[in-house]
Write a protein that binds this DNA or RNA. Sequence first.
RNA 1: GGGCGGUUAGCUCAGCUGGUUAGAGCGUCUCCUUUACACGGAGAAGGUCGAGGGUUCGAGUCCUUCACCGCCCACCA
Length: 905
Amino acid sequence: MTELPPQYNPQAVEEPRYQWWEAQGLFQADPDPKRTPYTIVIPPPNVTGILHMGHALNNTIQDILIRYKRMQGFNALWVPGTDHAGIATQNVVERALAKEGKKRQDVGREAFIQRVWQWKEQYGSTILYQLRRLGSSCDWRRTRFTMDEGLSEAVLEVFLRLHKEGLIYRGHYIINWCPRCQTALADEEAPRQQTLGKLYHIRYPLEDRSGHIEVATTRPETMLGDTAIAVHPKDKRYKALIGKHAILPLVNRRLPIIADELVDKSFGTGAVKVTPAHDPADFQMGKKHKLEFINVMTDDAHMTNVPKEYEGLDRLEARSKLIIDLEKAGFLGAIDEHPHNVGHCYRCHTAVEPRLSPQWFVKMKPLAKPAIEAVKKGTIKFHPKRWTKVYLNWMENIEDWCISRQIWWGHRLPVYYCEKCEHTMVAKAAPAKCSKCSGPVRQDPDVLDTWFSSWLWPFSTLGWPQQTKDLEHFYPTHTLVTAQEIIFFWVARMVMAGYFCMKAPPFTDVYIHGTVRDITGKKMSKSLGNIIDPLDIIKQYGTDALRYTLVTATAIGQDLFLSEERFTAGRNFANKLWNATRFVMSAGPAASGSPGARQLPSPSASAGGAQLAAPLGARPSASPAPITIPDRWILSRLQHTTTRVTNALDAYQFNDAATALYDFLWHDFCDWYVEIAKVQMPQSAEAKATTLAIMHKVLETGLRLLHPVMPFVTEELWQHLRPSDAGPSIMKAPWPKAAKKLTDDEAEAQFARFAAVVGAIRTMRAELNVPPDRKPPVHLITPQAAVRQFFESQQPLLQALAGVAEVHVAAQAQKPKDAATAVVEGIEVILPLAGLIDVAKERERKQQRVAELTKHLQQAEARLKDSDFTDKAPAEIVQGARERKQQLEEDLKKTAAQLTVLQAM
RNA sequence: GGGCGGUUAGCUCAGCUGGUUAGAGCGUCUCCUUUACACGGAGAAGGUCGAGGGUUCGAGUCCUUCACCGCCCACCA
């Protein structure tokens, strides 16, 4: 046993300990039909990712679950991996190319993809190493990547199956187009930014020359692609115009005036120009009303298919010119300032252009059906429950999924076109020639949306489409831990894929945790500069501190607001445990090997309790040592804590589990029991042996319970305390079970009385500024013989913990002079302190106390007088109220008597 | 425009199925270098639980209206 330094140094412990765990193979799990599996698949971080607080929270929670279940004896598997993150990764490499003055088109597709792979090999594991720093106990042998061979096979397989069932089709769709990057962007890749734009009012003459209809637009240049004007069907102002035609200014195209409920009567003029090829809403109207789709912009946002004076102009040049021309021709109305949200390319910040383009889609409605059923039936449960509604609402209104992306990095669509006859073929490998006309074939240039591989993650990582042993044993997985942002993108789609491919749910429980925010409630983000870097925190405070604080900072599913100071709580807790262990170790070994050493006495059924009953172990102890009320109390508290922690973890109430352990280990164990141990141990060899055994047992059990939350410090300390018959690591130590026979209400009640008396004396000492070395005698007055007997037996403890000399226990109160007095739990506490008492001040304090007790007593009496209460409330509540009233009466009587004495002085 | 969450001590938050005198951490104040720990110990101050209404013997907890803060979804051109 080595000497422990007085401060816990996480830096010295964490990395070596982690490497040891990994080297021992403690994270590994293999299929074993004899054991019950518990599986988690990691939400794969982007391969470009670096660890942020969101990851830290997400993975801490998963690790807590996995470590907990592993200790409970489950065959616990946590599958790690990364996501190829199409656009994000392509960007990183494009930026590197840009430094060489090249664009991806300059190097070509093949070479570019080579570069991305090189980048991935070099940097793609960064996030995985960072997850190790966090203590994540993943089975790293099983690390997967969404572009791995096996996972790519799964992607092709599912594409083919969907296609075969008629669930994949090609169609036109309005997408976000970045004219600078020349690619389509998903909505989430084109975040909307508040932009101060202008709202231009333009007058379109009516065909019958009876006047004009005025519309409002933020993008006047799109008018060149207008093919209709729309109004709300119930808009009285325009009702008469529906079915008539207007003339598009400068172009002179004839536009039907249509009615559609999509139009907002209150916006602008209530009439809207319809440009089906350049606006998502207009697109819908275009389809519904069978309008013409005119694309008026090229890939780089220059005008095309327009009158020749505008042909080839940049979109913004065209806008300026149009405004001038409209003005000249008298078509232009008001121009208003108009702040609105415009999508911007997330990497170059260019305003995106909604644009019509051919894309591939998956029909979602048929896939959604079983995914809705599963959640409705409770096969899959959300925690907290409220997300169920969000999920179902989205699923029931699900739209088809656009799965094609115009980038290079990703799974290329297994779609081939004949160069000659344009026949379309879907196949895993390129067909040699067209199946229809034998012409040459080319592959579709697009790749699949990144989610098209991650929706297969729960089974593709276990080997699907092969029928593997892993799949058989570990699927369906159990808990999916994720953030609310990706319920739709990811969670919902995994459920659909699970039923489509496996005919079974991908997981049974979904835990949705909150978003990590800064102290002002903002999301942590680089651009806001409000990041707290988890790796910084790990360096400064240690991984356990980070984990503890994250877990206590959030109730189930609530967002957490972090400031750096909070992490000191976790660091201090780890240090407290460290020192508690130092003390226990220095007090003596747990007498390992000798019979009865680890066999704790259990509480006696007889009153008084200073007597030993049967030991915990199988063999009866040879030399029984007395077991005291505090002994019984701490063991009983341990049982309650075990139950509470277990229940909390089962209910995903991680904060409650962590708090329960903090309270127990810090307050019950360190503040009380360790101090008590210092008194008990010198009393006799037997007392010392028993106290030591209890301290070892309680601390060791507490460390097990805490291990899922704070893995490093608990392992380190457990290695020092480790009973000789335990396994090599706390990771494999069985999860503690609460022992009914050790729960002890009587000892808890007695101890509460004792602690209250100690507290009363301490308060009096503090308030009267009694010097620490002054140890007055104390008088305890109570008519209850059993209580007197108890306090008499606890004299040394009271002396040490309350800082008093002799303890006088009596049934009758004397009239104390020059004494501080208090009443707790019906016990009068009298502390003679000649020379320190300020009678006037004491009197005032006592009066306040009497007033307080009177108020509470009146409340209690009023309550009991109410026959509604006594009749309708449960008997035990009424009984409790009676007892409380009695206690208050007694305390009040005695406090009043003390006041009388003071008043006489 | 829909939906969801929040509003409890100076600050950050717990308080799960309604039941004694509403808790914690941090901060503040007082005392303590007591042989595990000053990343510590002992004690104290500090709250009409956002506002109104309702259900109930009983509401921080359930229902309802409102106010403010925040989030998600949606086609304000």
